[in-house]
């Protein structure tokens, strides 16, 4: 009754080097395709989509290729004057996910002042619950993703004093599992994406000491499959976005060397689309800006030259984090 390992096989003719120019073109094209179906129909995640695209472009040293004046006007128009939160796009409601994305973009361009910063701070603080957790918006969905969004946003704005940090940490601690990982709520199964959110949260709040370091790092390094790709949970297929969630987590724990860099690099390279540019979740799938960013960010953590150094906590260029004077915790 042996269970076969779920994995993919890399094709001999796969791309083996970084197609940087093509990826930049892929992203730039996306930003000029308002009439395009895929673009228009995904307006409910536009703000995060712009963060993925713009950060990918920045990591490729191509930020200047996309300086559109209307970008900042757009972001400004997405801030809700009443609550202070930021929405995915016009006609959509404010949400923590998009509030963080907007703040990240504006920090990269050093344009944070165009926002009503007090409004953003008030919005984030208003979403903290009595148990320390955060809801994603006023409708009450609780998730550790939102705890990360809250502290990432506030730390970028240097306003961590506006929430109860100790309580927020306590909540994250209650989400810790038997395997050392974290889930979306207390007692929820460990998942690499949520582990990243919780470790990122603990890195910002300087509390990585509460992690069962070697137990968790073991769970994380077991995510690497024979193809070199990483999955997000045991017995799942590899996926480029987990290259980032798992790798940045290992980096924060000082255990990046517990997986094979060369094998992961091969896998990410194989997920590039040689025709259109961009990176997909697995070889042969349709590329998108989300996997393009997380593929490039992972390559950056692996020390790939020609890609800007990325910060493992914020998934933003390290130079931006340095400029802001932020020093999120990383275990040696």
């Amino acid at each position: 009754m042996a269970t076969p390992i779920k994995d993919v096989v890399l094709d001999e003719n796969r791309p083996k080097t970084l197609l940087a120019e093509k990826h930049a073109d892929f992203i730039i094209k996306l930003f000029h395709s308002e009439d395009n179906y895929e673009f228009a129909i995904t307006d409910y995640l536009r703000m995060s989509g712009m963060y993925w695209g713009l950060t990918a472009l920045d990591l490729l040293h191509k930020r200047d290729k996309l300086l559109r004046v209307d970008l900042f006007d757009f972001i400004k128009s997405c801030q809700d004057p009443e609550s202070g939160g930021i929405s995915a796009s016009l006609n959509h409601d404010p949400h923590l996910l998009h509030t963080l994305s907007a703040v990240q973009i504006l920090c990269m361009y050093d344009k944070i002042d165009i926002l009503d910063i007090e409004g953003v701070v008030k919005y984030v603080a208003s979403l903290q619950q009595p148990d320390g957790s955060f809801s994603g918006d006023k409708w009450g969905e609780i998730d550790t993703r939102f705890s990360f969004c809250a502290v990432a946003t506030l730390s970028l704005l240097k306003r961590m004093d506006s929430i109860d940090v100790d309580k927020a940490v306590k909540f994250i601690e209650t989400c810790k599992n038997f395997d050392g990982g974290f889930g979306s709520r207390p007692l929820s199964e460990s998942h690499a994406g949520l582990i990243y959110c919780c470790l990122g949260f603990l890195s910002i709040t300087n509390r990585l000491d509460i992690v069962d370091r070697d137990t968790l790092a073991w769970w994380l390094c077991e995510r690497q499959l024979p193809s070199g790709g990483l999955n997000g949970r045991p017995e799942k297929l590899p996926d480029v976005c987990y290259s980032w969630w798992v790798l940045s987590s290992l980096k924060l724990l000082g255990r990046l060397h517990w997986i094979s860099s060369t094998d992961l690099e091969n896998f990410i390279m194989a997920c590039q689309d040689g025709e259109t540019g961009g990176i997909s979740d697995r070889p042969g799938d349709v590329a998108d800006p989300y996997h393009t960013l997380f593929g490039l960010a992972a390559l950056s953590l692996l020390g790939y030259s020609n890609i800007k150094m990325v910060n493992p906590t914020y998934c933003m260029p390290q130079e931006v984090i340095d400029r802001l004077g932020l020093k999120p915790q990383v275990l040696a």
Partner: peptide, 8 residues
Amino acid sequence: LDPLRKGQ
């Protein structure tokens, strides 16, 4: 046996 994780 498990070269992917030899660092560990």
